[in-house]
Design a protein around this nucleic acid. Sequence first.
DNA 1: CCAAACTGGTTTCATTTGTAACCATCGAAA
DNA 2: TTTCGATGGTTACAAATGAAACCAGTTTGG
Lengths: 155, 155
Amino acid sequence: MAIKSEVSDAPEILNLENFLPYRLYRLADAVSREFSRIYKDSHGLTRPEWRTLSGLGQHGTMTATALGEQSAMHKTKVSRAVAELERRRWLVRSPDENDRRVEHLTLTKAGLAAYSEMVPLAKSFERELLARLGEEERAAIVSGVAALEAKLTLG
Amino acid sequence: MAIKSEVSDAPEILNLENFLPYRLYRLADAVSREFSRIYKDSHGLTRPEWRTLSGLGQHGTMTATALGEQSAMHKTKVSRAVAELERRRWLVRSPDENDRRVEHLTLTKAGLAAYSEMVPLAKSFERELLARLGEEERAAIVSGVAALEAKLTLG
DNA sequence: CCAAACTGGTTTCATTTGTAACCATCGAAA
DNA sequence: TTTCGATGGTTACAAATGAAACCAGTTTGG
């Protein structure tokens, strides 16, 4: 049997368990699922709501557009998350002086309280996640992610 | 101002852009989005459908349960993906001899053809993705992901 | 000054997803 | 053998998502 036919007869096979896009997605999904307990189980937030809360907690006041850029969310996700947090009275909107299309979003005391409560939990989640790894493994995942991020168009 | 009040007054802040669960998710999402062009744009497949095709292409014949385990999908996703691939006549079901609940799934010639067409594209996608990185960066992401996978309950 | 193009943000609609209930069959134990 | 709990797989329903249309309001170019 000629080599040429040998290599072209058998269909080329992809090993899914070893395929980086799949592994990355599955890993992120597992981590995200675990992490979601912090905002979902305790307060019934969705991920977009959590990110919105987190963005505002971090930056004080932002517009919806800025939120979308900071946390890599589509404008519709932001819009709905903001609406829900407003319904909970966790944030308020205030009109922009110069541009009447724009709204500035700010957490209320209640929103800030929820944020302050979750931040330590989030940090310890990350800490414990990384603590399961050895020193070089930790460095590997962090720098590996950073390297790929740098090469991609994110958000 | 006493140190104690200094540290407890300001709300602790989480830097989202630096938070591993967020970064991981955003990265996986971006990679997955780019990759999806291979199965979505050309054949209109969803991710579960692609994974199902991929699992069967790789293993020949599988049950729905096995597919779910191999590709980290919930049984409902598998069920719907299988139904769609069957509708396209890309796979067939055959009953199990001993257990009438079980179905064995196999790609048809058409399914296999689609699979064979996509595999090289998938491989070159991964290759080119990794080619954007330097040697150590490549090693870092691969071993970092592997390390985290090992510590988590996946799927 | 006015039309066209653009931008911030919301809504609508179709698709996808997750949860739970469900149906059929199987295996073990009484 | 009958019954009861697990298992393979599907379905129903509610919630989350994405794409595109949409509404204001703003800017730009003629």
